[in-house]
């Protein structure tokens, strides 16, 4: 059964006053209870991302649960034009997470879909009560870096990642979820990490969900430019908060045998030792 948090829901404020410079929540001390929205893509393709998210949040004093009924935000269907087909996923998502105060996902894109699309899809289907419930769930849903910086008030998560990395601000994290510079605030405080700016960072990598299949040539043209910029940084890792973009960028880099790996920000922030994840 879902375990609702004891704490009242936090409004979406930027709590500078409560910000702590370093982790000071000893393990075992009850922080906020968090329901993890793992996202279907990370769950299936790269479980190390949600595992790292759990590790990180627990280290920061949170009590993490994983409601197993969860599936997907439905964005792949919604953005391909299949709204009727997306609705069961939306309904399932809303019912699964209705009882939680903090819902956290390691994805700007999936959080963006929850916030921007769920209530709209419900209204389109004529289901006003689902729309209301979806809006309520959306208001309690956080992208991982928003949760760490805004709710926990932490920017130094005690990570150690001694590598040269560059950061790709995924479009949906930047322009839909609007996470701003929170990922960079967190990255800058990772010990040993050499952060190199990515040229033309705000340009889309060309993934675009089914765009990559409907217009593969254009998608690849964009991805190869992104890969070129990544390579120009001479980084070992390209970091993002969205695995879908990393699959696209990493797919090109791997085909090129570029020797640059992709890594999700959660995996960087979870790392505490010098060993490569």
């Amino acid at each position: 059964m879902p375990v609702p948090a004891h704490l009242p829901p936090e409004p979406d404020v930027r709590p500078d006053a409560t910000r702590r410079d370093a982790v000071d929540a000893p393990a075992g001390v009850a922080g906020p209870a968090v329901a993890l929205f793992a996202t279907c893509i990370a769950d299936t393709m790269r479980p190390s991302i949600p595992i790292a998210t759990v590790t990180l949040l627990e280290r920061l004093g949170c009590r993490v649960s994983f409601p197993e009924r969860q599936t997907c935000c439905g964005q792949i269907m919604t953005n391909t034009g299949y709204w009727d087909e997306a609705l069961p996923a939306v309904r399932n998502h809303v019912e699964t997470f209705a009882g939680y105060d903090y819902i956290v996902a390691p994805s700007g894109s999936c959080v963006g879909s929850v916030r921007d699309q769920h209530a709209m899809l419900a209204r389109h289907a004529g289901d006003q009560s689902l729309a209301t419930a979806a809006a309520a769930v959306a208001s309690r849903t956080y992208e991982l870096t928003e949760f760490i910086v805004d709710v926990l008030g932490i920017v130094d998560v005690g990570a150690h990642f001694p590598h040269r990395v560059t950061y790709h601000p995924s479009c949906h994290s930047a322009r839909v979820a609007r996470v701003g510079d929170r990922p960079l605030q967190l990255l800058r405080r990772v010990r040993g990490l050499d952060l190199v700016p990515l040229p033309e960072a705000d340009q889309c990598c060309g993934f675009g969900g089914t765009f990559s299949l409907k217009n593969p040539a254009v998608s690849v043209a964009m991805a190869s430019d992104k890969a070129r910029h990544v390579r120009a940084t001479d980084a070992e890792f390209v970091v993002s908060v969205d695995h879908a973009c990393l699959m696209n960028i990493g797919g090109v880099l791997h085909r090129q045998r570029a020797g640059v790996r992709t890594i999700h920000l959660a995996e960087v922030l979870a790392a505490t030792g010098p060993e490569t994840p």
Partner: peptide, 11 residues
């Protein structure tokens, strides 16, 4: 998309 609808309908 119908297959995805089924897969994503519940855990």
């Amino acid at each position: 998309m119908k297959a995805a609808e089924w897969a994503m309908a519940e855990g």
